[in-house]
Write a protein that binds this DNA or RNA. Structure first.
Lengths: 1416, 372
DNA sequence: GGATTCTCTACCGACAATATCATTAGGTATTAA
DNA sequence: CGAATACCTAATGATATAAGTAATAGAGAATCA
């Protein structure tokens, strides 16, 4: 069995490995070198890979990898119970034996490393000649599309361009693949037509083009095709000759014919035929080959499709297509009760799979059918048009759109054939092939649905951004195409024809499933490794055409009164006009032009009121069966709809890393975790749904559902001649009201969608496939309605499975209810008491949700509360409430989860207590804690009579500081925090509004100080992270110097291209995508659209890299924690769902889940995360050089200046040194130091570069300009060596030349010289922390930190030099205001090293195992 | 040379010196700050041209007077009842204080003319808060009997920069004219503003094509005229509105070319040399065609071969013209003397035109008179 | 390379400005040698 | 055929657009000489 698997996958993996161009793999075509994108180091195959390539003849792989080996063993040995294909619980047979521990950090040699280009790449030149672009991705996609629709002439054009590109880029893999695909297409064409001249073309292509013109030798597949072609030659003699010729040619290049015969292109009969004709001895066929033949006859595991590649789809088994369709009617037709017509067993998985397939494949068809039905029934009834359901309108649009598309396709064909350069013709050549791959009817439906959907999701009131709409539509079309392709690959019977055992396997054993998929890929047809993605150019152009056609066609009946005879009156007569439903125009936003597609107000109104009836629900719906397990970076979840496991933002870099990680099996735990999330079954809470529906139809504002026509208080317009300021304030208020109204409407549309989806799935059990963002946080893929949505979404959803609550469960239900009611800060027993006190209210809410006293509406989360009320009420109405079977999930939320991780990392005792890491009788609340601290400090100030403090004395509340504390984790800046606090203070009436800016400024300082005081260690870590990110993002790779030439100017220049990359405990490589964006213009029928060009890797945005790193890192941790917990919960048989830092399970399982959460957290932090991070950084950025700022006005700085000057004069004949030259100097020394030659090293030792001088004077710790200290305080540079010096004694005197040039052993001399100790400056980390605690508020010391002092010291020196004249800062402002004392700095290239880790606090994570309120 | 001397308009205060008083950044092309008039000699011709006779005992609101050169001239000419200098930049503080000392009835208020509050404080009935001096006499402006009359009790002058702020402010001014709000409630109050070309072009477009919304809407409510502009050649299409004041005198905030040493310029121009080669060639061709009629090709293709003598003449002419055109392009102040007299005339006749082609654009101000 | 001014200001899911005119580069047609 | 020229077009770069910024402060990036 395994052998069979092995054969299928072998080719796959080999191709794949060359697909990422490993340096270790020899390029297939000798004259081509590997591409510049290479792994930093040769790969060591991980065990999982080794298993994957193991040859069939070998014994099964060693059980190095626990999870897989057990699964594989299970596959063979287990006696599978056919009745339990998808057991709801797998407690007994845990499918993945995941260690509870997070993974060990990667061996350094296993780190994934990709080098970004040395300089910003040039924007893709889209030089197009005769409609052939030179953009590789674009041509590739076009080529693919042309092949799919059989337009070979055009495909050939594309192929020629691809060949050019590939040869330039030395991309041999794609090159050969493309030619193979083309050959295959030619051959297929011949088989269809039987026209001999076509066969000739086939051979000519290989002989003339490939071999002669391009010198492509071809791979096994090429030759397999050639053999196949030769077989097809009718004349037996010729056929034989050709065969012999090609076999010889192949052998001549020293390769084994077996490889060719094993190719999936040739089926067994053909192989045998060839063997016979050419007298290949059977012995020459490899064991694999023979084995293969035997197996194919009696294969049990392999679906038939694998045995016969061209197999016709087998008829659907089971209840039949009609039944499946009928069962989905409920999704289309709200009046239809499913499952009534057929006797269907809902547990029949094959049936369910068919349904899912249908759902994905025919979502658009279904919508169309529904429109048509509505339209027809309407005509029968003869209803007046403008009252018609929106669906019939859509049907009209659709009917009008289809002929237009046909017409356009004709024009495309004309354009392609004529080859004119007429306006539009060139564009048509671009998008034409892509337009053809999907049938016009479907295309029309997608257009209509997507435009409406995009409007509800992102619309700005009556319009939506054209650029957005166009791209979105293009993307959706692509998605549909991909689904089509996947469906084709997997064939009709891919799932349906599997035996139950195989079906079982899919969900049990990832690797087995993976093999199955790759087999289906290789067997179905010759194809690219992955379906080429459509470039944005294509998507946008295609979207543009479709939308402009829809705009042209779509009309909406609008009723209007005919004006009366006299002016200003209306006659009672009404007329109906058919007005354009959409309109394209431009708006100005802050003086910038913005293309907008506007919807007619009537249409907008309809979208907010009409039943959408599945009108506009496209793809990405919840699934009716369990999502497929993730097997690759783009394989998993939906059956046919392709989704990526990581939501990469069109970043090539991220994709590289994720792909490589997936390939090496690093992501398997992550996949497993996501699978767990995906297999949580949900259903709609019917009772809540009914209430929602009722409320919805009332069209009034209720429980966060906005009213259809909200009463809006438009501010009174002031007199036209009022003061401009007054008028302006009015205008601003109007703007605010208007945006509020727009928001109101779009929320309403959103609710409409949610309700509609809920209605469609009312009788279903469904699942959310999940993927992750680039940090690893998981999100359900279906938009609109999912459990991380708003309160309404959450209220509508519940677990499909019900579990008996038992005693503890009931208690948790009560606690949960109290939480939802806002009573979540008390102890558990108090919360229970709260619920019990409110039992009447709960009863009332449940019994009469709308007519009673509506207690549930008071909550911030009314719908979830209502759901809880229903459940609890029901439970309590039982004789024995403990027997209640509960569907409602109970949520456990971390108290400021980010801070929890920070506190654990930093070992902050006080902080840990505040975020409930420490056991406590009562839950702690950080916000209150910080507020108290601030309050104390303010009161102290008030006593001293500080006016701001006096004003604020009694106003410091939890509410005021909450947002700031929360966002602190996200790196909020001082100003940002000040704004938050200002907004809070504005709500306090007793304050004079005029004073608020000043007060908020004061208070913000206090809040920042308090946070820092409470989370000392955390703050230090935050700063450490920032410093690391800063150094990384301002660093260059050593070999980057070879490509210093700026492509644009041709001059030498240094570009910072390094982004921060790290690996999470679950081995996800995280790449921060922040770079400067290059935007590209794409002209469409509608307008020119400007989008970011994803293909260029540009300079890093170092600010963003810096500010985002700490939150991203923490998020990557909490994501790991979540997935770890998910795996463990699953292993214990719990149903599990999560919203990042909120974890859900059945009431009865909450205790168990909490235990798991705590254990996972401890396990995660049990490893020294930060230490590992540092180690990874050191490995990853080994030898990099970074540019640091050094205070210039010190002996050290002066020496550097002098040395630079001397060097420049000596070597360049001028006194100045450019940054590049400086770097080259440093690198020269560095290179010499690495040399094996003793003399070289000696020379290096004698070189005195700026970095050497810096080192001599105590290095960065002493001399670096302290920065990024504003946020949480301490500069990282202040840890470690207490050698902070005041050089006043040396002021102005430049150290002797000999001293610098002297032998290296004098180094401590320089050190000493620069470091006469100044008591004030000696601040160790711990001392610092404790001192601050003790002296907070003491004016003399005043929380000043060493870095500030360093700054002030530098300033002082400046003053002494007389460079800056202190000015009184009057009311001057603007650019000419007196300058701040400016600190002169020098830039020095130093080796990229990372600061010492801040000392960890004393908190022991293990304590938290007993902390009840850790998550609550 | 004291700061005060300029206010007495002694001729010994050179323009160069005045320029040196401005912060270097404000002089740089990147600056969007309100620029400052330094050529005090043109103030009189400008005011001669403006009919200011009606402005007796008037109140002047002076926004961003900066160095105060224009303000001083205006003050001397009008002898206003009150001259309010709204200058928020502390940088000019000393000079403003000097101004206040020199000219009676002038009040230096370090507030921003952009802020509505400034005017609210000025016109409200309450005594104005601190930055305004205690003894500040409030202007009592009488509204004209008809809102269509020009109010000669009030005159608004100022320097506007290229900043977004300035642009917005002018848009607001016009809006106020339309609504009759703000100081326009007192009747039609005239504005006398120095504005950058970019702003002027918006309201006084140089071609039909560039006449966009702001121009149209402004025309509906205000009269805008260009009073004086620098002798800078304007780029782009559209007609060239020639300065109406003696162009040689209107030297506004421009860095003199003479201050740049030749070597430095070469470095700076280097890019242009490469970039605008085509333009130079085109100009040369045109000029050579003019200078050597009959020798230049008239047909499309390859030119006929000329007798070597004529060929040589052509080459020489071309070389000289090249020198000349490149000089113009390089903004060299003195044209090379290598060209014979007759030709020189021809070339110089077209000099302006060529200059315009090379758009020697500097930060220049326009003075626009607005008569609401 | 240094001083000065400009920009931006909380993470993620989530994603975006365009038309127009001036100028040049580069290809094609045209002509004469 | 190559050579020299004009003409034409696609590609690139610069600029305008709207029109209250409101006021905080500090670090990093960009820009100019």
């Amino acid at each position: 069995m395994l052998r069979a698997v092995g054969r299928g996958i072998r080719r796959q993996i080999v191709r794949r490995s060359s697909g990422v161009r490993l340096t270790s793999g020899a390029p297939r075509i000798p004259w081509l070198c590997p591409s510049p994108y290479v792994y930093h180091k040769p790969i060591r195959w991980s065990s999982s890979n080794a298993r994957a390539i193991s040859l069939p003849s070998e014994t099964p792989p060693k059980h190095t990898d626990r999870s897989y080996s057990t699964a594989a063993a299970a596959l063979e040995l287990e006696d599978i119970d056919t009745s339990a294909i998808f057991p709801p619980l797998r407690r007994d047979a845990a499918p993945y034996s995941i260690p509870i521990e997070p993974l060990e950090p990667l061996d350094p040699s296993q780190l994934l490393v990709f080098e970004p280009p040395a300089a910003p790449e040039e924007k893709c030149m889209r030089k197009s000649t005769a409609g052939v672009s030179s953009d590789k991705a674009e041509v590739l996609a076009t080529f693919n599309a042309c092949i799919k629709v059989g337009v070979l002439a055009r495909a050939q054009l594309m192929l020629e361009q691809i060949t050019k590109n590939c040869i330039e880029e030395r991309d041999t893999v794609v090159l050969v693949d493309a030619h193979n695909i083309f050959l295959k297409a030619l051959l297929d064409q011949y088989s269809d037509s039987g026209n001999l001249s076509e066969l000739k073309v086939f051979f000519m292509w290989f002989e003339n083009k490939m071999r002669v013109e391009y010198s492509i030798k071809g791979d096994a597949t090429t030759f397999a095709l050639l053999l196949k072609g030769s077989l097809n030659i009718p004349a037996a003699e010729a056929s034989k000759r050709y065969l012999a010729e090609y076999i010889n040619l192949w052998r001549y290049s020293g390769r084994n014919i077996v490889d060719v015969l094993e190719s999936a292109v040739l089926n067994n009969e053909e192989v045998l035929k060839i063997a016979k004709i050419c007298h290949l001895r059977i012995g020459e066929l490899s064991a694999t080959c023979r084995e293969m033949m035997k197996e194919q006859r009696k294969s049990r595991l392999e679906p038939p499709i694998l045995a016969v590649p061209d197999a016709k789809p087998t008829p659907v088994k089971g209840p039949g297509l009609a039944a499946v369709k009928s069962s989905l009617r409920s999704l289309i037709d709200p009046d239809h009760m499913p499952f009534q017509e057929y006797d269907i067993n809902l547990n029949d998985k094959e049936f369910q799979i068919e349904r899912q397939k249908l759902l994905e494949e025919h979502a658009f068809d279904s919508a169309r059918e529904r429109w048509k039905r509505d339209f027809e029934s309407l005509s029968e009834r003869g209803v007046i048009k403008q009252d018609a359901e929106i669906n019939s309108l859509l049907w009209e649009w659709h009917q009008a759109l289809v002929p237009l598309i046909h017409e356009e396709l004709k024009r495309v064909q004309h354009a392609e054939e004529s080859g004119t350069k007429a306006a539009g013709a060139v564009d048509r050549c671009f998008y034409g092939p892509f337009m053809r791959v999907i049938e016009p009817e479907k295309l029309a439906a997608i257009t209509i649905i997507e435009l409406l959907r995009t409007h509800t999701l992102n619309g700005v009131g009556a319009g939506l951004k054209a650029s957005r709409a166009v791209l979105q539509l293009g993307r959706e079309v692509e998605l549909e195409y991909q689904a089509q392709e996947v469906a084709k690959q997997r064939g009709e019977g891919f799932f349906a024809n599997m035996s139950k055992a195989e079906l079982e396997t899919i969900f049990r054993d990832r690797s087995a499933f993976r093999n199955l998929i790759s087999k289906s890929k290789s067997a179905s047809d010759l194809d690219f490794e992955e379906i080429p993605e459509w470039p944005n150019t294509v998507k946008v152009k295609l979207g543009g055409v479709l939308i402009s056609m829809l705009i042209h066609v779509a009309r909406i009946p609008v009723e209007a009164a005919v004006p009366g005879l006299t002016e200003g009156t209306e006659s009672s007569e009404k007329i109906v006009q058919h007005l354009p439903a959409f309109q394209h125009c431009y708006e100005y936003q802050r003086g910038r032009k913005l293309g907008v597609v506007k919807l007619h107000p009537e249409l907008v109104k309809r979208l907010g009121t009409d039943d959408l009836n599945f009108t506009a629900i496209g793809k990405s719906l919840p699934m009716v069966v369990r999502p497929l397990p993730w097997t690759d970076w783009d394989e998993g979840g939906y059956f046919y709809t392709r989704s990526k496991v990581v939501r990469i933002r069109e970043s090539v870099e991220q994709r590289q890393y994720v792909k490589a990680a997936a390939e090496r099996g690093h992501l398997d735990h992550l996949f497993a975790g996501l699978d767990v999330l995906g297999r949580t079954a949900w259903r709609i809470n019917r009772r809540v749904f009914d209430v929602v529906l009722e409320v919805w139809n009332q069209e009034k504002a209720f429980a966060k559902i906005p009213a259809l026509n909200p009463d809006i208080n438009f501010p009174l317009e002031p007199e036209p001649n009022a003061d401009p300021k007054v008028r302006w304030e009015w205008a601003r208020e109007m703007k605010r009201v208007n945006t509020a109204r727009k928001n109101n409407h779009s929320t309403r549309c959103d609710v409409n969608f949610k309700v509609e989806i809920a209605r469609a799935f009312l009788f279903e059990e469904f699942y959310f496939p999940h993927n992750i963002d680039f940090r690893g946080r998981a999100y359900p893929i279906p938009p609109n309605l999912n459990h991380i949505g708003n309160d309404l979404s959450r209220g509508l959803l519940m677990f499909s499975e019900a579990k008996e609550v038992g005693e503890t469960g009931l208690r948790w239900m009560k606690i949960h209810l109290a939480n939802l009611a806002g009573y979540d800060k008390a102890s558990f027993s108090q919360r229970v008491a709260f619920t019990e006190e409110n039992i009447e209210n709960i009863h009332d809410s449940a019994e009469n949700p709308l007519t009673g006293n509506r207690w549930w509406l008071k909550s911030d989360d009314p719908w979830q509360l209502l759901a809880s009320c229903f459940a609890l009420n029901e439970a309590l109405s039982l004789n024995n409430p403990h027997e209640y079977k509960c569907h409602i999930p109970v949520a456990q939320d971390g108290t400021c989860n980010g801070l929890q991780h920070y506190a654990a990392l930093g070992g902050d005792v006080a902080g840990a207590r505040q975020v409930n890491l420490e056991p406590s009788d009562l839950p702690q609340d950080v916000y209150t804690g910080v507020a108290e601290l601030v309050k104390a400090s303010v009161e102290l100030d008030a006593k001293r009579g500080l006016p701001a403090a006096v004003a604020l004395k009694d106003l410091v509340t939890r509410k005021v500081v909450k947002q700031t504390v929360m966002t602190n984790v996200y790196g909020v800046t001082f100003i940002g925090a000040r704004n938050q606090i200002e907004n809070q203070l504005k709500c306090i009436e007793s304050l004079d509004q005029k004073d608020i800016p000043a007060l908020s400024l004061y208070l913000t300082k206090k809040v920042f100080d308090s946070i820092q005081e409470m989370f000392t260690g955390a703050s230090a870590i935050q700063d450490w992270l920032v410093t690391c990110a800063k150094r990384i993002s301002r660093s260059v790779r050593p070999n980057q110097l070879e490509h210093l030439k700026d492509p644009k100017t041709g001059e030498d220049s240094v570009h910072f291209m390094t982004s921060v990359v790290w690996t999470t405990p679950l081995r996800l490589p995280v790449v921060q995508p922040y770079r400067q964006v290059a935007s590209a213009a794409i002209s469409t029928n509608l307008q020119t659209v400007y989008i970011n060009d994803p293909y260029v890797i540009d300079k890093v945005d170092s600010r963003k890299q810096m500010t985002a790193f700490p939150p991203n890192f923490i998020h990557s941790l909490d994501a790991s924690h979540m997935l770890l917990s998910a795996l463990n919960c699953d292993a214990s048989g719990l149903t599990f769902a999560s919203v990042h830092d909120s974890f859900w399970t059945h009431p009865s399982d909450v205790d168990e889940m909490n235990r798991i959460l705590r254990d996972s957290f401890v396990a995660l932090h049990g490893k020294d995360i930060i230490e590992n991070l540092k180690a990874e950084f050191e490995e990853r950025y080994k030898g990099f050089r970074t540019l640091v700022k050094v205070i210039a006005n010190t002996p050290c700085g002066k020496r550097i200046k002098l040395a630079r000057r001397n060097y420049a004069i000596e070597n360049l004949g001028r006194p100045k040194l450019t940054a590049v030259e400086d770097l080259q100097w440093e690198l020269k020394r560095w290179a010499l130091m690495q040399s094996h030659d003793h003399d070289d090293r000696k020379i290096a030792a004698e070189m005195v570069t700026p970095s050497v001088i810096l080192e001599k004077y105590g290095g960065l710790k002493v001399n670096e300009l302290a920065e990024n200290t504003g946020k949480l305080g301490l500069s990282v540079n202040d840890y470690g060596s207490p050698s902070l010096g005041d050089q006043s004694g040396d002021e102005g005197s430049i150290v002797d030349q000999e001293d610098i040039l002297g032998p290296a052993e004098e180094s401590d001399d320089g050190y000493e010289e620069s470091a006469p100790l100044d008591e004030d400056m000696v601040l160790g980390g711990m001392e610092e922390g404790s001192r601050m605690l003790g002296t907070a508020g003491d004016e003399d010391i005043d929380l000043d930190d060493a870095s500030t002092k360093k700054r002030s010291r530098a300033r002082k020196e400046l003053d002494e030099d007389g460079n800056t004249i202190p000015r009184d800062n009057g009311s001057a402002k603007g650019t000419l205001k007196p300058k701040q004392a400016h600190i002169a700095t020098l830039n020095v290239w130093v080796e990229l090293k990372f600061p010492d880790l801040p000392p960890k606090g004393l908190f022991d994570v293990n304590l938290l195992r007993k902390s009840e309120y850790f998550f609550s | 040379m004291t700061a005060a001397s300029i206010f007495r308009r002694s001729a010994d205060e050179s323009i160069a010196h005045l320029r040196s008083l401005i912060s270097p950044y404000a002089l740089s092309r990147r600056s969007k700050l309100p620029p400052s008039l330094v050529n005090w000699q043109i103030c009189d011709p400008i005011m001669d041209k403006l009919n200011l006779l009606a402005y007796k005992k008037t109140t002047i609101i002076d926004m961003n007077p900066n160095l105060g050169v224009f303000s001083a001239a205006l003050h001397e000419r009008l002898q206003p009842k009150q001259h309010i200098l709204l200058e928020p930049e502390e940088f000019y503080g000393d000079r403003m204080r000097e101004f206040q000392k020199t000219y009676k009835n002038s009040w230096y208020i370090p507030l921003d003319g952009y802020d509505w509050n400034t005017y609210n404080q000025l016109f409200s009935d309450n005594p104005p808060p601190p930055p305004w001096p205690d003894n500040f006499p409030k202007p009592r402006i009488q509204a004209t009997t008809s809102p269509d009359d020009v109010n000669s009790d009030l005159l608004f002058v100022g320097h506007m920069g290229k900043s977004e702020k300035s642009e917005r402010l002018i848009a607001q001014f016009i809006n106020c004219c339309a609504l009759g709000t703000w100081i326009q409630q007192y009747g039609r109050v005239r504005f006398l503003l120095w504005v950058p070309d970019s702003i002027k072009d918006r309201y006084l477009p140089r071609s039909i094509a560039s006449r966009a919304r702001p121009a149209a809407s402004a025309e509906a409510v205000v009269d805008i005229t260009e009073v004086a502009s620098s002798n800078v050649i304007r780029t782009g299409r559209g007609f060239q509105k020639l300065p109406e004041i003696n162009p040689d005198n209107v030297e506004v905030e421009e860095k003199r070319l003479t201050s740049i040493k030749p070597q430095e310029r070469k470095v700076k121009i280097k890019k242009k040399l490469v970039i605008r080669q085509k333009m130079v060639e085109d100009e040369i061709k045109k000029l050579v065609a003019e200078l050597c009629p009959g020798l230049t090709p008239t047909t499309r293709g390859r030119p006929k071969k000329l007798p070597s003598k004529e060929q040589k003449k052509l080459e020489e002419t071309r070389a000289r013209v090249r020198e000349l055109v490149e000089a113009i392009r390089n903004e060299e102040p003195i044209l090379p003397a290598s060209i014979p007299c007759k030709e020189r005339v021809t070339v110089l006749n077209r000099c302006d035109e060529i200059r315009r082609r090379f758009e020697h654009k500097k930060g220049a101000e326009e003075e626009a008179e607005k008569i609401p």
